[in-house]
């Protein structure tokens, strides 16, 4: 036992992101490979992969999904799951646009984040207090939000001031502001997971809730917190999309398929769906991988439906590879 602990401590100093046993490693290898393939495809097709337009495009495309996926990572790491993010994104975009039109930008941001946090709190409490499986709890909350959206809105609503729209389109050099926002949220989540007590507790609860509870972790609190953070991330994505559209839209979340797609990005990044293993770095890699795939398809002008087919195959193939690696050891 002591020996076990000793080896655990000895391992700690290696940087987690690049260690051989890091679950994030294969996704970055795949991303590197995909960048080379993308570059080759672009060159053959007469385009420029590393052109500023394409690089900016990739970042723009991945920012919203990336922000949601970072939140989803926290929920999944704690052994939970959030299927309500897509409808919450739509709701956030509408709340943001309507409040901003009336009371200004800051009030809009505040209202959106408060509502998102409340939705996350409800998700977390239903899961922990009522002991409803996360899949069903968040699906139920998603349906509730869907009903509210469909009964109150039948099209885009509200208006986002010019000053706030800049978040959606401005960039500093080749880096869009939206990508910086994503980066900031990802770094915050990374810090939370690797440098704070809460982070270690999230891994503990996701690894084995019973063991975590017996070790003195208040597991319910941890799960509720991850759901609040996940919903806040969805709210931030809704704000970003409202800034891009200039208004709120009731279908912006579901059209993007952010619920299942964010789960896909998280598991592509090597985070275990059952929780307890993985991290934010892998998720960022997973989102970028999907975005590079997208931009290659766009360059080749392949039918958008074929994209779904390839995505499905990539997802299953990647997970099969991870499973092999895990069992090979």
């Amino acid at each position: 036992m002591t020996q076990h602990i000793a080896t655990l401590w000895a391992k700690r100093p290696t940087p987690r992101g690049l260690a051989v046993d890091s679950p994030a490693r294969p996704v970055f290898l795949a991303l590197g490979l995909m960048l080379v393939v993308g570059w080759l495809l672009f060159t053959i097709d007469g385009g420029q992969f590393f052109s500023q337009a394409n690089i900016v495009g990739i970042q723009q495309r991945s920012a919203a999904l990336g922000i949601v996926a970072v939140g989803q990572t926290l929920a999944i790491l704690a052994g939970s799951l959030d299927l309500s993010v897509a409808f919450l994104i739509s709701l956030s975009s509408l709340i943001a646009a309507e409040t901003m039109a009336e009371y200004g930008v800051l009030a809009g941001i505040g209202a959106t984040l408060v509502v998102s946090a409340v939705v996350g709190l409800v998700n977390g409490l239903v899961i922990t207090r009522l002991k409803v499986h996360a899949f069903i709890a968040t699906l139920g909350v998603a349906l509730i939000i869907k009903g509210v959206l469909e009964s109150r809105y039948d099209g885009p609503a509200g208006h986002v001031p010019e000053s706030f729209q800049r978040i959606g389109f401005d960039r500093i050099g080749p880096v869009p502001v939206s990508a910086l926002l994503w980066l900031a949220i990802a770094v915050a989540a990374w810090f939370l997971l690797s440098r704070t007590t809460l982070g270690y507790r999230i891994f503990a609860v996701g690894g084995d809730p019973e063991v975590a509870r017996l070790s003195g972790v208040r597991t319910d609190r941890v799960i509720v917190t991850t759901h609040v953070l996940c919903s806040l991330a969805a709210g931030a994505a809704g704000l970003l999309l409202a800034a891009r559209l200039g208004a709120g839209a009731p279908t912006v979340g579901t059209d993007g398929g952010y619920d299942l797609e964010s789960v896909a990005a998280v598991v592509l990044g090597g985070t275990a769906l059952a929780g307890g293993r993985g991290g934010v770095a892998g998720t960022v890699g997973g989102v970028l991988l999907l975005a590079v795939l997208d931009s290659s398809f766009n360059q080749l002008e392949i039918n958008s439906f074929a994209k779904d087919v390839v995505r499905g195959v990539v997802l299953v193939a990647a997970l099969a590879v991870y499973a092999r690696r895990r069992y090979a050891r």
Partner: peptide, 27 residues
Amino acid sequence: LVTTLLRVPSFIVTLGMLLILSGAVSL
């Protein structure tokens, strides 16, 4: 078979199948 032999979580396998089927039908 993918779920059992390749040990991929069925949530992901069937999610992938969802994408493949809907994409293929539209195509």
